[in-house]
Design a protein around this nucleic acid. Structure first.
Lengths: 227, 227
DNA sequence: GCCTGTGAACCATTTCACAGCC
DNA sequence: GGCTGTGAAATGGTTCACAGGC
């Protein structure tokens, strides 16, 4: 089934994959402050998970800890980065330059996290050609003509336009979409879509607050950790 | 193993709760177009899930379908709305009026989905007092002085400020936080936090694209549905 | 006949607990 | 002694398949 060039023989569970970025983020300040070794207990606290869960997650990547000592911060960072495929940066195209598109374009977290915004796309002739955050806005034609491999498309259009944008980018060969527009996108089976929806998140919070069920939960997915 | 055994009347699984907003959204166009009855098959397709899963989810709410017929669109909408606690609107406070805060303030999905932005909060004196999307920006003091019950706080500050903002709102009695700032917030056990993080989402997409593992997945959580 | 509601089987994930190693 | 790595148990979630009711 897998035709893996290098390692990656191991099947990493989806739930673990979803937490790796959190670990990566938690490791960053440790590197910056010169910490060389971290225990599963400490890192788990920083990442908001339980130590047993963290150890199990990391065990899927291989044995990068030292018993009785902990994990080498730098090596662990390298390894997670490699596993996520973030050694070489990924190109990002943001489609839809409304309020949200603007905000996403200005988001500084891209470059530091292995992504590079390479296209800002809109169909409004008033906006096309202008510069936002130092990047020239292009129309869809130009995006389609210059799009390369290893690209992730961020859909930040109004809901009504989202599906046709999705169809268009899929037609151009894009296989990964992050959808900020409300609603479910219908795409062919080999395309991945992740959805980020403000109203959904608020509604889930509302449900739990309404019931006094407010147990601490660090969202998205992941084994909760108290406190 | 519930913490409070007695009030655990009808326990709706977390995974189901996370999908109810999606169903609600899928029902909306049906109502608008006057459809009165929908089958689990049809609604599942609209929501991007499998029909068996949809039926199981809805069964936790009670028996609101009719065998041989389907679900009454209006009644189902009412019931999900009720379960999510969205009959009376929730107040939302957005803290941090940078690019993202602006975009969120302008987001039109709030009102139609049971939420009302009641406070825009920033600490920059240049911004406090100005109007954004028709709402006056206040400082934290004024927010703290006027905050009511049933409020959800959206944290849209830079990462460095997020934890202290969280501490401050928790101190004021807030128990539900939607965090857009990268990083994990540490809060007391009775507070719920959901996290929305662009970089995390992109990294998960990168992982899957890197492996040819691009199977269609409707993100967040939820049983996937092909097509 | 058709479509819901649901026990039972199946599968994924989390937690436990401890063996193994520094 | 301390901390990782991991089988095994427990939990939670999804899918199956069909009984039940219109």
């Amino acid at each position: 089934m897998s035709t893996d060039p290098i390692s990656a023989r191991r099947e990493i569970p989806d739930a673990t994959v979803a937490r790796l970025p959190v670990y990566l983020r938690a490791l960053h300040p440790l590197i910056s402050s010169g910490v060389e070794v971290v225990s599963s207990e400490e890192l788990a606290k920083l990442a908001g998970v339980r130590s047993a869960g963290l150890r199990k997650d990391l065990s899927y990547l291989g044995s990068y800890g030292v018993r009785g000592v902990g994990y080498d911060v730098e090596r662990l960072t390298t390894e997670i980065t490699r596993q996520l495929g973030l050694q070489q940066p990924w190109s990002v195209a943001i489609i839809g330059m409304g309020n949200l598109g603007h905000a996403l374009a200005a988001y500084s977290g891209f470059e530091t996290r292995g992504f590079e915004v390479q296209w800002l796309v809109d169909h409004d002739p008033e906006i096309v050609g202008t510069e936002i955050s130092g990047i020239r806005v292009v129309d869809f034609q130009e995006f389609a003509a210059t799009v390369t491999d290893q690209v992730i498309v961020v859909v930040a259009t109004p809901p009504a336009a989202a599906q046709s944008v999705a169809d268009a980018v899929v037609a151009v060969g894009v296989r990964s979409i992050l959808n900020f527009a409300p609603g479910v996108l219908s795409v062919p089976g080999h395309t991945q879509v992740r959805r980020v929806d403000l109203a959904t998140e608020l509604q889930i919070l509302a449900f739990h607050e309404q019931r006094g069920k407010s147990e601490s939960r660090v969202a998205g997915d992941g084994f909760g950790a108290g406190r």
